[in-house]
Protein backbone atom coordinates (compact mmCIF):
# COMPACT_ATOMS: atom_id res chain seq x y z
CA UNK A 1 0.00 0.00 0.00
CA UNK A 2 3.00 2.27 -0.50
CA UNK A 3 1.09 4.74 -2.63
CA UNK A 4 -1.28 5.41 0.23
CA UNK A 5 1.36 7.02 2.36
CA UNK A 6 1.33 10.65 1.46
CA UNK A 7 4.32 11.53 3.63
CA UNK A 8 6.56 9.42 1.40
CA UNK A 9 6.01 12.05 -1.30
CA UNK A 10 7.75 14.93 0.47
CA UNK A 11 11.49 15.45 0.98
CA UNK A 12 12.23 17.27 4.24
CA UNK A 13 14.82 19.80 3.17
CA UNK A 14 15.39 23.52 3.10
CA UNK A 15 15.87 24.83 -0.40
CA UNK A 16 14.78 27.83 -2.45
CA UNK A 17 12.24 25.58 -4.17
CA UNK A 18 10.84 24.37 -0.84
CA UNK A 19 10.49 27.98 0.25
CA UNK A 20 8.81 29.23 -2.95
CA UNK A 21 5.09 29.96 -2.94
CA UNK A 22 2.98 26.89 -3.78
CA UNK A 23 0.74 28.55 -6.38
CA UNK A 24 3.79 29.69 -8.35
CA UNK A 25 5.21 26.16 -8.20
CA UNK A 26 1.96 24.58 -9.39
CA UNK A 27 1.76 27.07 -12.24
CA UNK A 28 5.42 26.45 -13.09
CA UNK A 29 4.91 22.69 -13.27
CA UNK A 30 1.86 23.13 -15.50
CA UNK A 31 3.76 25.41 -17.87
CA UNK A 32 6.73 23.05 -18.01
CA UNK A 33 4.59 19.97 -18.60
CA UNK A 34 2.59 21.76 -21.26
CA UNK A 35 5.80 22.73 -23.07
CA UNK A 36 7.04 19.14 -22.95
CA UNK A 37 3.73 17.74 -24.15
CA UNK A 38 3.53 19.87 -27.31
CA UNK A 39 7.12 19.36 -28.43
CA UNK A 40 7.44 17.06 -31.49
CA UNK A 41 9.64 14.04 -30.67
CA UNK A 42 11.87 14.73 -33.69
CA UNK A 43 13.18 17.89 -31.96
CA UNK A 44 15.45 15.87 -29.70
CA UNK A 45 17.51 18.92 -28.70
CA UNK A 46 14.46 20.46 -27.00
CA UNK A 47 14.12 17.42 -24.75
CA UNK A 48 17.77 17.86 -23.84
CA UNK A 49 17.00 21.39 -22.63
CA UNK A 50 14.00 20.12 -20.63
CA UNK A 51 16.10 17.39 -19.04
CA UNK A 52 18.71 19.94 -17.98
CA UNK A 53 15.98 22.15 -16.49
CA UNK A 54 14.47 19.23 -14.58
CA UNK A 55 17.89 18.07 -13.38
CA UNK A 56 18.67 21.58 -12.09
CA UNK A 57 15.38 21.55 -10.17
CA UNK A 58 16.41 18.24 -8.58
CA UNK A 59 19.76 19.69 -7.55
CA UNK A 60 18.43 23.02 -6.28
CA UNK A 61 15.54 21.28 -4.51
CA UNK A 62 17.95 18.75 -2.93
CA UNK A 63 15.90 15.79 -4.06
CA UNK A 64 17.90 12.56 -3.83
CA UNK A 65 18.22 10.81 -7.19
CA UNK A 66 17.24 7.47 -5.68
CA UNK A 67 14.02 8.94 -4.28
CA UNK A 68 13.26 10.51 -7.64
CA UNK A 69 13.83 7.32 -9.62
CA UNK A 70 11.74 5.23 -7.23
CA UNK A 71 8.86 7.66 -7.58
CA UNK A 72 9.11 7.38 -11.38
CA UNK A 73 8.07 3.71 -11.24
CA UNK A 74 4.47 4.74 -11.99
CA UNK A 75 5.25 5.33 -15.65
CA UNK A 76 6.89 1.91 -16.19
CA UNK A 77 3.86 0.28 -17.84
CA UNK A 78 3.79 3.01 -20.45
CA UNK A 79 7.53 2.70 -21.06
CA UNK A 80 7.05 -1.01 -21.71
CA UNK A 81 4.15 -0.21 -24.01
CA UNK A 82 6.26 2.38 -25.83
CA UNK A 83 9.06 -0.14 -26.31
CA UNK A 84 6.67 -2.33 -28.30
CA UNK A 85 5.78 0.47 -30.68
CA UNK A 86 8.85 0.20 -32.98
CA UNK A 87 8.12 -3.48 -33.54
CA UNK A 88 4.41 -3.24 -34.27
CA UNK A 89 4.49 0.23 -35.81
CA UNK A 90 3.96 0.82 -39.50
CA UNK A 91 6.01 2.97 -41.86
CA UNK A 92 9.56 2.70 -43.16
CA UNK A 93 11.47 -0.22 -41.63
CA UNK A 94 15.02 -0.16 -40.34
CA UNK A 95 16.76 -3.52 -40.57
CA UNK A 96 18.67 -4.36 -37.40
CA UNK A 97 19.87 -7.67 -38.78
CA UNK A 98 17.81 -9.98 -36.62
CA UNK A 99 14.71 -7.85 -36.54
CA UNK A 100 13.36 -4.86 -38.38
CA UNK A 101 11.77 -1.90 -36.64
CA UNK A 102 9.67 1.01 -37.81
CA UNK A 103 11.59 4.29 -38.04
CA UNK A 104 8.50 6.29 -37.24
CA UNK A 105 7.76 3.87 -34.41
CA UNK A 106 11.21 4.45 -32.94
CA UNK A 107 10.64 8.19 -32.87
CA UNK A 108 7.18 7.70 -31.39
CA UNK A 109 8.55 5.43 -28.66
CA UNK A 110 11.24 7.96 -27.85
CA UNK A 111 8.62 10.71 -27.68
CA UNK A 112 6.33 8.75 -25.35
CA UNK A 113 9.16 7.78 -23.02
CA UNK A 114 10.72 11.26 -22.94
CA UNK A 115 7.44 13.05 -22.33
CA UNK A 116 6.20 10.58 -19.73
CA UNK A 117 9.48 10.82 -17.82
CA UNK A 118 9.70 14.62 -17.92
CA UNK A 119 6.01 15.10 -17.13
CA UNK A 120 5.99 12.71 -14.19
CA UNK A 121 9.36 14.13 -13.09
CA UNK A 122 7.97 17.65 -12.85
CA UNK A 123 5.02 16.49 -10.73
CA UNK A 124 7.42 14.56 -8.49
CA UNK A 125 9.55 17.68 -7.96
CA UNK A 126 6.42 19.65 -7.03
CA UNK A 127 5.22 17.30 -4.30
CA UNK A 128 8.76 16.55 -3.11
CA UNK A 129 9.28 20.24 -2.34
CA UNK A 130 5.73 21.25 -1.35
CA UNK A 131 3.68 19.70 1.45
CA UNK A 132 0.21 18.48 0.55
CA UNK A 133 -1.70 21.25 2.38
CA UNK A 134 0.39 23.87 0.57
CA UNK A 135 -0.27 22.28 -2.83
CA UNK A 136 -4.00 22.35 -2.08
CA UNK A 137 -3.78 25.99 -0.99
CA UNK A 138 -1.90 26.74 -4.23
CA UNK A 139 -4.64 25.10 -6.28
CA UNK A 140 -7.26 27.21 -4.50
CA UNK A 141 -5.28 30.37 -5.22
CA UNK A 142 -5.09 29.35 -8.88
CA UNK A 143 -8.92 29.31 -8.94
CA UNK A 144 -9.46 25.56 -9.08
CA UNK A 145 -13.11 25.17 -7.88
CA UNK A 146 -12.97 25.14 -4.07
CA UNK A 147 -15.36 22.19 -3.84
CA UNK A 148 -12.94 20.04 -5.85
CA UNK A 149 -9.98 21.14 -3.73
CA UNK A 150 -11.95 20.42 -0.55
CA UNK A 151 -12.90 16.94 -1.78
CA UNK A 152 -9.27 16.28 -2.69
CA UNK A 153 -8.23 17.45 0.78
CA UNK A 154 -10.63 15.07 2.51
CA UNK A 155 -9.54 12.27 0.19
CA UNK A 156 -5.85 12.68 0.99
CA UNK A 157 -6.56 13.11 4.71
CA UNK A 158 -8.46 9.82 4.95
CA UNK A 159 -6.53 7.81 2.36
CA UNK A 160 -4.12 6.20 4.79
CA UNK A 161 -6.86 5.43 7.27
CA UNK A 162 -8.90 3.61 4.63
CA UNK A 163 -5.88 1.86 3.14
CA UNK A 164 -5.01 0.65 6.64
CA UNK A 165 -8.54 -0.64 7.21
CA UNK A 166 -8.29 -2.46 3.90
CA UNK A 167 -4.91 -3.89 4.81
CA UNK A 168 -6.23 -5.13 8.15
CA UNK A 169 -9.21 -6.80 6.48
CA UNK A 170 -6.90 -8.59 4.10
CA UNK A 171 -4.64 -9.61 6.97
CA UNK A 172 -7.61 -11.02 8.85
CA UNK A 173 -8.57 -13.05 5.77
CA UNK A 174 -5.05 -14.34 5.24
CA UNK A 175 -4.83 -15.21 8.94
CA UNK A 176 -7.81 -17.49 8.45
CA UNK A 177 -6.19 -19.22 5.50
CA UNK A 178 -7.81 -17.34 2.64
CA UNK A 179 -5.42 -17.38 -0.31
CA UNK A 180 -7.50 -16.80 -3.44
CA UNK A 181 -5.97 -17.72 -6.79
CA UNK A 182 -8.99 -17.55 -9.07
CA UNK A 183 -11.54 -14.87 -9.72
CA UNK A 184 -14.44 -16.98 -8.44
CA UNK A 185 -12.72 -17.13 -5.06
CA UNK A 186 -12.76 -13.36 -4.80
CA UNK A 187 -16.08 -13.10 -2.98
CA UNK A 188 -14.58 -12.32 0.48
CA UNK A 189 -12.41 -9.54 -0.95
CA UNK A 190 -15.30 -8.02 -2.87
CA UNK A 191 -17.64 -8.24 0.11
CA UNK A 192 -14.93 -6.62 2.19
CA UNK A 193 -14.76 -3.73 -0.23
CA UNK A 194 -18.53 -3.34 0.06
CA UNK A 195 -18.20 -3.20 3.83
CA UNK A 196 -15.36 -0.74 3.45
CA UNK A 197 -17.52 1.53 1.32
CA UNK A 198 -20.18 1.53 4.03
CA UNK A 199 -17.54 2.42 6.62
CA UNK A 200 -16.15 5.18 4.43
CA UNK A 201 -19.62 6.61 3.84
CA UNK A 202 -20.50 6.48 7.53
CA UNK A 203 -17.22 8.12 8.42
CA UNK A 204 -18.11 10.85 5.94
CA UNK A 205 -21.39 11.36 7.80
CA UNK A 206 -19.62 11.51 11.17
CA UNK A 207 -17.05 13.98 9.86
CA UNK A 208 -19.92 16.05 8.57
CA UNK A 209 -21.47 16.03 12.06
CA UNK A 210 -18.15 17.09 13.54
CA UNK A 211 -18.01 19.96 11.04
CA UNK A 212 -21.58 21.01 11.79
CA UNK A 213 -20.78 20.97 15.50
CA UNK A 214 -18.15 23.61 14.80
CA UNK A 215 -20.38 25.90 12.81
CA UNK A 216 -19.87 24.59 9.24
CA UNK A 217 -22.29 26.24 6.85
CA UNK A 218 -21.47 24.45 3.61
CA UNK A 219 -18.48 26.55 2.58
CA UNK A 220 -14.99 25.66 3.74
CA UNK A 221 -13.53 28.76 5.42
CA UNK A 222 -10.59 30.22 3.51
CA UNK A 223 -7.93 30.88 6.08
CA UNK A 224 -4.94 32.23 4.24
CA UNK A 225 -4.96 35.38 2.15
CA UNK A 226 -1.37 35.33 0.94
CA UNK A 227 -0.06 37.47 -1.86
CA UNK A 228 2.86 36.16 -3.85
CA UNK A 229 5.05 39.08 -5.01
CA UNK A 230 5.61 39.35 -8.75
CA UNK A 231 9.36 38.89 -8.29
CA UNK A 232 8.97 35.46 -6.71
CA UNK A 233 6.44 34.44 -9.38
CA UNK A 234 9.10 35.31 -11.96
CA UNK A 235 11.85 33.49 -10.07
CA UNK A 236 9.83 30.28 -9.93
CA UNK A 237 8.55 30.55 -13.49
CA UNK A 238 11.97 31.35 -15.02
CA UNK A 239 12.85 27.74 -15.79
CA UNK A 240 9.46 26.78 -17.24
CA UNK A 241 9.46 29.98 -19.32
CA UNK A 242 12.71 28.82 -20.93
CA UNK A 243 10.94 25.53 -21.60
CA UNK A 244 7.98 27.35 -23.14
CA UNK A 245 10.25 29.34 -25.50
CA UNK A 246 12.05 26.14 -26.47
CA UNK A 247 8.72 24.44 -27.13
CA UNK A 248 7.52 27.23 -29.39
CA UNK A 249 10.81 27.16 -31.36
CA UNK A 250 10.58 23.38 -31.61
CA UNK A 251 6.98 23.38 -32.83
CA UNK A 252 7.53 26.18 -35.34
CA UNK A 253 10.82 24.74 -36.57
CA UNK A 254 9.60 21.20 -37.11
Amino acid sequence: MGAGHAHALYVHEHSPIHAASPEAKVAAVLLFVLSVAITPPLQAWAFGVYAVLLASALVVGRIPLRFFLLRLVGILPFILLALMVPFVGSGERIDLGWVSVSREGLWAAWGIIAKATLGAGAAIVLVATTEVPAVLAGLRTLKVPSVLVAIAGFMIRYLELIADEMGRMRQAMTARGHDPRWLWQARPIASASGALFVRAYERGERVHSAMMARGYTGEMPVLEERETPVASWLAVLAGPMVAAVVAVIAVVGS
Binding site: G153, R157, R203, R206, V207, S209, A210, M211, R214, G215
Partner: peptide, 24 residues
Protein backbone atom coordinates in the same frame (compact mmCIF):
# COMPACT_ATOMS: atom_id res chain seq x y z
CA UNK B 1 -16.35 12.98 19.16
CA UNK B 2 -15.50 9.42 20.04
CA UNK B 3 -13.06 8.91 17.15
CA UNK B 4 -10.67 11.89 16.92
CA UNK B 5 -10.14 10.98 13.26
CA UNK B 6 -13.68 12.19 12.62
CA UNK B 7 -12.91 15.51 14.20
CA UNK B 8 -9.50 16.16 12.65
CA UNK B 9 -10.30 16.48 8.98
CA UNK B 10 -8.10 19.38 7.87
CA UNK B 11 -4.56 19.07 6.45
CA UNK B 12 -2.86 20.31 9.63
CA UNK B 13 -3.75 20.49 13.32
CA UNK B 14 -3.61 24.30 13.28
CA UNK B 15 -6.10 24.45 10.40
CA UNK B 16 -8.36 22.01 12.25
CA UNK B 17 -8.28 24.17 15.36
CA UNK B 18 -8.95 27.24 13.20
CA UNK B 19 -11.93 25.63 11.44
CA UNK B 20 -14.51 26.44 14.14
CA UNK B 21 -13.51 30.03 14.93
CA UNK B 22 -13.10 30.72 11.20
CA UNK B 23 -16.70 29.61 10.68
CA UNK B 24 -17.60 32.17 13.33
Amino acid sequence: FQDPNDQLFMPTVAEDVAFGPANL
